Simulated scan of single mutants.
Amino acid sequence: MINFNGNIVAKDTNLLTQNRAFLYGDAVFETVKIVNSKILFLEDHYFRLMSSMRVVRMEIPMNFTMEYVEEQLLSLVSDNDFSNSSRARITVFRNDGGYYLPQTNTVSFLIHVVGIDDALYSFSEKEYEVDLFKDFYVTKQLLSSIKSTNRMLNITASIFANENGLDNCLLLNDSKNIVEAIQGNIFMLMGNRLITPPVSEGCLNGVMRKQVLEIAKKIESLEVVEEVISPFDLQKADELFITNVIKGIQPITKYRKKAFGVALSKILQEKLNGIVSDL
């Protein structure tokens, strides 16, 4: 028997009592965008998921091929009639048993999907204000670069942003440098240099981050580098923008008293949509 919201109920009616993802955050996940029954950047998502599972020492099932994962995602999308445009999340969690030390490294997975309006990435020039989140810091370690279900820092930062009328917050690492935004990687344009923090700073190894880096490196006269970004650099920047696989590119228009342009963000979004249209 267990107590659930003040009621004594049979233990086997609540599957969460032994679920390691719920009890310990012992899970990793990938969120993908699906357009016209095609998973955007499938290979990148798949190999990041496999890498995340290896980092946390999960046992990868023999049948967990890229084709199998693709089939499982697309079958659920089809069953829900979300084939035109949708976002799907696959969460892989270690099976029940044990406390901090698991009794097994075998895994199960859960997929859920929701429909979204836009197949292509839309560009918004509306005011988008950010500030720094200083209550907690991202640590410069390998675990920070994978998508685990331990997202308490991102949750508390989201609450902070909402309470202060902000659209987003920029997260800092334990060296007090800019790492990323709450739900995406950060890019900064300064003159002809496009800068994003290296993964070694503790930022997520984002799939869209990779796409934007590849696109930007093909633009003549633009120098693309992975370098540390300090909070002081933000005041000297010409543009700031956030990237993730669902939104694409989100330009930041304001940080404290500093306003930013959106010209490069718009160019990159157009080139990104060109890639999506050709898939």
Rank of each mutant, 00 (worst) to 15 (best):
Phe22Thr: 09
Pro102Ala: 03
Ser83Cys: 08
Arg256Trp: 01
Gln211His: 01
Lys254Met: 12
Phe160Asn: 06
Arg57Pro: 00
Gln72Asn: 10
Phe82Asp: 07
Ile229Asp: 03
Leu170Asp: 02
Phe29Arg: 05
Gln103Arg: 13
Asn84Pro: 00
Ala161Phe: 07
Gly98Pro: 04
Ser175Thr: 08
Tyr99Ser: 08
Lys134Gln: 15
Asp44Trp: 01
Asn80Val: 02
Leu132Val: 09
Ile215Gln: 03
Thr17Tyr: 11
Leu204Glu: 01
Phe93Gly: 09
Ile116Asp: 08
Thr106Met: 05
Phe232Leu: 13
Ser85Arg: 06
Arg256Gln: 14
Ile182Val: 14
Thr65Ile: 11
Gln18Ala: 12
Arg193Ala: 03
Glu129Phe: 00
Ile275Asp: 00
Val130Lys: 09
Gly206Leu: 10
Asn164His: 15
Glu70Thr: 14
Thr31Arg: 09
Asn205Lys: 13
Tyr24Val: 09
Asp131Cys: 02
Leu42Thr: 01
Ser83Tyr: 08
Pro198Ala: 09
Pro251Gln: 03
Asp174Gln: 12
Arg57Glu: 13
Phe260Met: 04
Val113Tyr: 06
Lys210Tyr: 02
Arg94Leu: 05
Val69Gln: 07
Arg193His: 05
Ser108Met: 10
Arg87Gln: 12
Leu23His: 06
Ile116Thr: 14
Asn205Pro: 04
Lys217Thr: 13
Asn150Arg: 13
Thr196Pro: 04
Ala21Ser: 15
Thr149Trp: 09
Gln72Thr: 03
Asn95Thr: 11
Asp278Tyr: 07
Leu16Met: 10
Phe64Ala: 11
Asn168Cys: 08
Gly206Pro: 03
Leu189Tyr: 11
Arg87Asn: 11
Asn205Gly: 05
His45Glu: 06
Asn177Val: 01
Gly97Ala: 04
Gly6Asp: 04
Lys257Gln: 13
Thr65Trp: 07
Gly274Ser: 08
Val77Tyr: 08
Val130Glu: 11
Ala263Gly: 00
Asp12Cys: 06
Phe64Leu: 11
Ala161Asp: 11
Asn95Leu: 13
Leu74Ala: 05
Gly184Phe: 11
Gln103Gly: 15
Ile242Val: 15
Ser144Thr: 15
Leu153Arg: 07
Glu67Gln: 13
Leu101Trp: 01
Cys203Trp: 02
Ile267Leu: 14
Glu67Ser: 12
Lys38Phe: 07
Tyr100Gln: 09
Thr196Tyr: 09
Tyr121Phe: 15
Asn168His: 06
Lys257Phe: 11
Pro251Ser: 11
Lys218Phe: 01
Lys176Thr: 01
Ile178Lys: 02
Lys147Gly: 10
Ser122Val: 14
Asn80Met: 14
Leu268Trp: 02
Val228Met: 06
Leu272His: 01
Phe136Pro: 00
Pro198Gln: 12
Glu163Pro: 00
Asp131Tyr: 10
Leu213Ala: 05
Gln235Tyr: 14
Ile146His: 03
Ile34Thr: 12
Gln235Asn: 08
Asp117Ser: 14
Asp81Phe: 11
Tyr68Arg: 09
Ser122Asp: 03
Val212Arg: 00
Ile116Tyr: 06
Leu23Tyr: 07
Ile8Lys: 14
Gly184His: 08
Ile178Ala: 02
Ser230Glu: 07
Gly191Val: 10
Met53Trp: 04
Gly25Cys: 05
Leu194Asn: 05
Leu189Phe: 11
Ile155Gln: 00
Glu71Met: 13
Ala161Pro: 08
